[in-house]
Design a protein around this nucleic acid. Sequence first.
RNA 1: GCGAAAGUGGCGGAAUUGGCAGACGCACCAGACUUAGGAUCUGGCGGAGCAAUCCAUGGGGGUUCGAGUCCCCCCUUUCGCACCA
Length: 875
Amino acid sequence: MAEETELRYDPAAIEPKWQQRWAADPKLYAAEPVDCGKPKYYVLEMLPYPSGQLHMGHVRNYSIGDALARHMWMRGYNVLHPMGWDAFGLPAENAALKNNTPPRQWTLANIAAMKIQMDRLGLGYDWACEVTTCLPQYYRWNQWFFLRMYEKGLVYRKKSKVNWCPECATVLANEQVVDGCCWRHETTQVDQRDLVQWFFRITAYAQELLDGLDKLDGWPEKVRTMQRNWIGRSEGTDVDFFLEEQGSGVRDQGSDAGPSTPLGAKSAPSSAQDDNAVRIRVFTTRVDTIFGATSVQLAPQHELVTAFTAADSRLKAQVDEMIDQQKKAREAGDLGAIEKHGVPTGRFAVNPYNGERVPIWVANYILADYGTGAIMSVPAHDERDFEFAMKYGLPITQVIKPIDPAVSQELPFCSEEGVLMNSGAYDGLSCEDAQKRLQEIAVAGNFGEPKVTFRLKDWGVSRQRFWGTPIPIIHCESCGLVQVPDEQLPVVLPDQIEITQQGGSPLSRVPEFVNVACPNCGRPARRETDTMDTFVDSSWYFYRYTDAKNANAPFDPEIVMYWFPIDQYIGGVEHAILHLIYSRFWTKVMRDLGLIVNDEPARRLFTQGMVIKDGAKMSKSKGNVISPDEMVGRYGADATRMYALFAAPPDRDLDWQEDGVAGVSRFLARVWRLATKYAPLARTAGMDSHPFRIERGMDGAPSTQPTGLSLKLLRKLHQTIAKITLDFEGRWHFNTCVAAIMELVNEIQAADAQLAAGEVPAPVVRELLRSLVLLLAPFAPYLAAELWEELGEDGAVLRASWPQSDPALAKEDELEIPVQINGKLVTVVRVAADADAKAIEAAALAGEKIQSRTAGKTVIKVIVVPGKLVNLVIR
RNA sequence: GCGAAAGUGGCGGAAUUGGCAGACGCACCAGACUUAGGAUCUGGCGGAGCAAUCCAUGGGGGUUCGAGUCCCCCCUUUCGCACCA
């Protein structure tokens, strides 16, 4: 065997060879037709943004998904395992600015580069259903959906304060604002601007999106909680306080020329409770405390404040300063830490329940965009109001006392375990009863109603960018907003465009794009120049995969019905609210459009941990980025992927240590040597030989039974099969799967001398190696393919059946039972695996160490757990 | 501040139901082989001790024959939310 030393595991030779073979076999990873008769399995990984470079997070995500897909193929499923590109978005425009490369060209080149990286990694995707969101074949359906939603009233336009990122020069959704800064530019503070924007009415589905979470038991609880908090449902009451008229002189002075009276008030009524009085609507979850309201607090941006300040320059200055201060705090990133601060407006409001007059203040802690932007302040029963009242010496009136007299009455008392006091006719009612009663009164008196408020806002989708889906609307001077007719879709992005850093939408500077005949009246009109948020693209791309080439519809409902819901979705937890809530919304909209029947996109969701390096997130700025190409080049794709699965359980963060990759690579080399060495022996056994699978005879007893070393190795094999199979069913601790394969290999390796001496029959060797390769196939596909061929097997290893564990063979016939005295380990005894408690106890007591330790002592109690342990309690 | 997850050797981690703590790998140490290699093989590797043994899963208490695992209190780290009325 002189040449043996020259043979080495060489991934650089093996991997390209199989890449070529696989590329020549497009059927290999292809989904089969819906009528193929097999059970389906849809495994989906989040599609990447084509930055040009895969990063380790992708490698990890895709290694998990690919292992699962390969396993399911081997289990005989019809697997859909697609990949695509989230190809619209700002970086392409930035690159265009920097390199003078058109976004399209830049993006498509990046896609080509990343596809090569994916192929090198050996990821088994069905490229026939590839989706690239920046191509008109895809985004025309964004436009189509937009129009269908527009027709259903789910799309609307409104002028609103929007989050504006000066760096992106575009609007951001609330979800894209993190600590007051842009999610892409973490140090760039977001401005507020007034713009007319397009919105998707996601709030129409707020309740359903919330309710659906309870049924998504295949999703991590963490994600469900985050979505619940984001939707932020709260039940309460809207109540109108009445604006008390000022002394007639003051009022009359400003009323004509001054601010338009807010909230539809007409003339100045004499009575505050007149039907025509200006109403200040507040939202409260604690209407039961309303008798303790000692002021009304308005957000600085509240429209009534604007009205007040128009006539009061001193107040205006104070309010402006407050808004400015909020802005600065946001810049500093500690909006929450800002001290409560307010100014009295000098105006008063009347409590509709008792006619009490309370001052109206403007306060910096009132959010303009939640509820009504106005609250009633009840210092005795709300911590924030308490803090505020203490600061400004506002009265604090207790109106709730605890039910349990033992509970401290110290204010603020915020519990709802109480009864009313100082509340007139309602004294003595429980908080809960009072809320109901007071709501009824408000409805009857026409000054309020029960109200459910959500924190979730409608989804602003307008972006003043070039590289996105054009919004398919035409502005016509005579017809207004006109839909682009379906047959004119897609509205295609112009090719020739100069990207500049000027504000506003780049498309507005392309006359050929903007100028269009109105589809309605034919007169000159202008196209909408906003493009859609890229989260639109990723909200439904996984439906398109099932029928990616359909030119007549976004997809064929029949095909979607077969594949959906997604059986397993895998991605990073950073998408827990943005992408995953939009996707759920889109699914419900498509269902209500009659396109699909499923309520939710994905049955199971798995969020993998981050890949970190030296305890910190990999980032260019920290200079700790490890490139997948480098790893693949040095150790091969198999070692890189397998390390990504081995180094930590998939749901936890993974610290990338190159030494670890080298270790996995050494392991694969060991497998390669072992398999190559004994493959010739294995091949001498016939293809159908399974001599040591236990056949049951007529009497139920095994008719063939391996013995000695063969038994030992086969037992380990079948234990390993059982362990890994179980993990694929749901626990997904692939790190221990890899460890189990290593143990198996170690055990076979330890028998090297006997194997070499021919002490193990060829059929057993074949069985061992064959199964080892099958177990390896989801984790190290290249090596598995290579060794499969080496073993003389026909066809792709992916088409072979996943091995089955034979429980009879996996079962140990002798066990080591630990024997404890008073809970401390003293010794172990070997007993038959099926020994009963009595036999185990006898064996334990017979042991020498036990004898000497119990001599002269009293054994009070003997605990025997068959198969587990013996514990002697002695004194 | 609120909520969630986590805390185990020098390091990544294992222990699926309360039952031999440290599987598997890395690093390290010793040895073998040698065409000297970032190769391979053998052995060792939580701490203390010559040893028998004792101590050890962030800290402290508890339940139990028995606790990394269950309960209570505390500490630390990470993540999410953070005036949502």
